[in-house]
Amino acid sequence: MKTSLNETRHIDRCLRGTPDNSEQFLFQARRLLDPAFDASVKLQQRCYRLVRDHARAQVRAEIAAADQQVFSFPEHRGLRDRLYRLFK
């Protein structure tokens, strides 16, 4: 578990951090020479995409909630009336 955590941390630094040139070079070389390591890197990239999609879905829901607020809350009635007039 500890080894795996260290590997995750190392991959994170190389993909998302600011590794120096030699670390980046060794990282790329290991990807080419070690298929298991390369698979681990790809798995981690997939995790980043899943995290992004999770967060993006949340933000989308928040934006939809803001839209609902504008189109239903009494305090935005003036704005709504202006908008409805544009589409008459």
Binding site: E62, A65, H76, L79, R82, L83, L86
Partner: peptide, 15 residues
């Protein structure tokens, strides 16, 4: 905060 930001941008930029 995000909700407030989005409503603010709606009011300002949606028309």
């Amino acid at each position: 905060q995000r909700a407030g930001l989005f409503v603010g941008l709606y009011k300002k930029a949606f028309p």
